[in-house]
Amino acid sequence: MTSFFTRRLVLSLVTAAVAGGLVAAWLLGRVALRPVAMYTGWLLLVLLLGLTFFNARKKLPFIPLFSASTWLQVHIYAGWLACFVFLLHTGGRVPSGAVEIMLAAAFGLVAASGAFGLWLSRWLPPRLTRSGESLVYERIPMLRHRLVTEAEDIVRAAEAETQSTTLGDFHVRVLAGYFAHQPAWLAPLAGGDAEHHRVKLELEALRRFLSVREIQIADQLADLVEAKRNLDHQFAGQRLLKLWLFAHIPLTFALLVFTAAHVWLILQYSHR
């Protein structure tokens, strides 16, 4: 089985070789006074359409066109190649026309969001795995609700069993809000566990006022607090993994519109 490192090395080398070939062809084309901007433009269009088809391919799982993993690999390396062809196409010139500025800006944003997403998909998953139990993103609201109700059930049962309101008061004052709270955007990923630590410290401090039975119940609550910390971590991370596509995919379609306008203008006005 091919290791991740070997696969990355091989595909990177192949991409670099193709890019090198393109540079050589571009240089020769320029020397030969050929319309290299036209050639690279058409190549870029083909690459863009191919890259965009990756999104369509995900919606057509019944078509036997290689695995999604293969498509993703092609998407990643063809994306890098497209960035390279874009530089060849513009010749490094900063665009100054209205359509060209919009087109270049859209391409830049799509490429940047893609690169960001690639980095995110490589950087975040190991951290989420190390954080604790892996959760399905769509179930996280339910799991949060379950934590809230479970904590309520435990505290209510403890009050009935021990005839003490110490844990009940603590739940009302601290735990209820903590379990129902939805974390801020990136705080859990950036090590923002202050709320979690505050709750754990307060729970720890409460133990000296608890009976032996209440301490056992407090341990159960501490497990739930830990589960909530992981839940928040998973939620923030997975939300980021999904939200970058809110930039990448919509901008891709805007890019296609500007590209179509650009192609139309070229076919209409170009001298070459």
Binding site: L245, P250, F253
Partner: peptide, 21 residues
């Protein structure tokens, strides 16, 4: 939601192009 954002941006870009032409 992502699909709606996509279509909105697509329509916005198309509008820009049509207005430009």
């Amino acid at each position: 939601q992502r699909g709606r954002v996509t279509w909105l941006l697509f329509a916005f870009a198309l509008g820009l192009v049509v207005l430009g032409i």
